[in-house]
Design a protein around this nucleic acid. Structure first.
Lengths: 142, 142
DNA sequence: CACGATTCTATCGTATGCGATACAAATAGC
DNA sequence: GCTATTTGTATCGCATACGATAGAATCGTG
């Protein structure tokens, strides 16, 4: 009697995350966005003009992931990347007009995703909080 | 007042899955395994000699992911891939001696991951079931 | 039994993620 | 004020993931 993937929490997390990105696909594809790009835009809609490292801190991604991602978004006309004149090491990421306009074009996305999950708002919030707690526990044990 | 990634369930799922793989890394790296490779082995330990498509059905991965993954595992000496003589379209995946031996070498991994999560067994099972339910709901809405 | 449809796996192209490393700019000591 | 260290990004290599497509083997139907 061996444990199979279906019994493992890690697999539930892994496969549900895949299903989540698949659920976002029909919502984001018409906008020409991938899920990580949508996350970056969501971060910038809240707080524009961040440094690459600050975005990484919020999204828990390294620069080796963010730099190419941001370059693709720059090529797509969603953001600009400019070296800070005060400190030439830093790169500031700003939304373009098109990047800002995307917020309205994507206004229906959260609702669409919520429906896809089949969860109520309280259930969603509870699951989110459990996941966040578990994530922080795992991150602390470095 | 715009929603930021920290408030979004999707981001909790996304970032917790990354943290999960990071938590597995110190457990799997000494064995020379990646997390998806560990999943494939877990599936085969339960049920060896599966077809590529059957593994994909259990792990919810497509052949365009599994084929290169299995080839790397074959190169690493963990599995063999053989065309079925009955039906040459099918490829059977079998554990090698080394692949079977890995089950003992990895015996401490579940315990190590459980500790990293900081969850009790009942909490883990409850979270797993919530995630599975949500995943199946999302997958059904294709 | 011929042959189009279906099945099963593989290949190709693109987009993440991350470890290791590189490199330039800024800072800290002495 | 000069250099060793630190900081902030970027680059490189490798391993997933997946949509689209290809290609071979088998099946179904007349």
């Amino acid at each position: 009697m061996t444990i199979s993937p279906a019994d493992m929490l890690c697999f539930s997390l892994y496969s549900t995350q895949h299903a989540m990105q698949a659920a976002y696909k029909p919502l984001l594809e018409p906008l020409g966005l991938t899920y990580p790009q949508y996350l970056v835009l969501s971060a910038l809609w809240s707080n524009d003009g961040r440094k690459v490292g600050e975005l990484g801190g919020e999204l828990l991604l390294e620069t080796n992931t963010l730099t190419p991602l941001l370059k693709r978004m720059e090529a797509a006309g969603l953001v600009t990347r400019k070296r800070d004149s005060r400190d030439e090491r830093q790169v500031r990421v700003h939304l373009t007009e098109e990047g800002r306009a995307m917020q309205d074009r994507a206004a229906h996305v959260p609702e669409g995703f919520l429906r896809a999950t089949g969860l109520s708002i309280p259930q969603l919030a509870a699951l989110r909080d459990q996941l966040n707690t578990m994530r922080e526990t795992m991150r602390a044990k470095t």
